[in-house]
């Protein structure tokens, strides 16, 4: 610990450089990330509605993995599956490589990549698993994840609210 009188002048320069770097970082983050035009992810129906305009962009779409839709070719490391918003908007996702450990059917995912013009297929570069906020001990009747919670976290603030026979209101 330096307890002698500080040489404030020469110390100041270093601090000012440090502060400037931090200020630049803050501003850069703010400008690139918190823009009101940027949505963190689209829901499948939103992505399909805007697909024609979004094809050239790197976007994220969130959805639930449809049971039975998973295809995995081990030799070529190609994965394909369908995500849905439970309101009959399905998108077929393709991805190169094995998925994250917690990827499974019925799970929520956020995929990052590009969408086709018709909004029916998606080429994913990044595959992320999205969890609900539920934590519970294993149940004896096998797999009782609260689907409603997961749906809410994926599809709340969904723009279109078509009536459907499955799923819940966001």
């Amino acid at each position: 610990m330096n307890l002698s009188p500080k040489k404030k002048r020469s110390k100041s320069t270093k601090w000012v450089i440090g502060i400037s770097l931090i200020a630049v970082a803050v501003i850069a983050i703010a400008l690139t990330q918190i823009s009101s035009n940027t949505v963190y992810f689209y829901t499948p129906d939103e992505a399909q509605a805007k697909a024609a305009t979004l094809t050239s962009q790197n976007i994220k779409v969130a959805g639930m993995v449809v049971a039975g839709s998973r295809e995995w070719v081990a030799e070529t490391l190609k994965l394909a599956f369908t995500i849905t918003d439970l309101k009959n908007h399905d998108i077929r996702v393709s991805y190169n490589g094995p998925p994250p450990d917690m990827f499974k059917e019925g799970q929520g995912v956020v995929v990052e990549g590009t969408i086709s013009g018709d909004g029916k297929s998606f080429a994913a570069r990044t595959l992320m698993v999205k969890h609900s906020e539920e934590y519970k001990k294993p149940s004896t009747d096998g797999g009782t994840m609260n689907k409603e919670l997961l749906e809410k976290s994926l599809f709340k603030t969904q723009a279109t609210d078509k009536p459907s026979n499955s799923g819940t209101q966001p």
Partner: peptide, 9 residues
């Protein structure tokens, strides 16, 4: 798991 990686967490 059918996938090559199975991470021990």
């Amino acid at each position: 798991s059918p996938y090559p990686e199975a991470t021990n967490a």
